[in-house]
């Protein structure tokens, strides 16, 4: 339940990262508001996402290999 809530918040953070530039494009908000919204969304993403995102991926398979 908590994990689902955190994931929902992360999705909202991503939405709040891309929505302000789109609103700026359509003339809905000013650039300063866009900057503030994006910064808030960034903060939310980096606070919430590490709590649930799985910590390993194929990347570790690539980068951890020795020559």
């Amino acid at each position: 339940m908590l994990r689902t809530l955190l994931q929902l918040l992360s999705w909202l953070a991503l939405l709040a990262t891309i929505l302000p530039p789109l609103l700026f494009l359509t003339g809905g908000i000013e650039l300063v508001q866009c900057h503030v919204s994006m910064l808030t969304a960034t903060f939310l993403w980096f606070v919430v996402t590490p709590c649930w995102m799985e910590r390993q991926s194929a990347q570790s398979a690539q980068t951890a290999e020795a020559p």
Binding site: A13, L14, T17, I18, P20, P21, L22, F24, L25, L31, C34, M38, T42, W45, F46, T49, P50, M53, R55, Q56, S57, Q59, S60, T63
Partner: peptide, 25 residues
């Protein structure tokens, strides 16, 4: 840092997209 990179990745992709959208406007 590798774990942090995985976490940052989706956000970074959207910020790159935002660069283009803002520049277009």
């Amino acid at each position: 840092v590798a774990r942090f990179a995985n976490i940052a990745s989706p956000w970074m992709v959207l910020v790159f997209l935002a660069f283009g959208i803002v520049a277009a406007k």
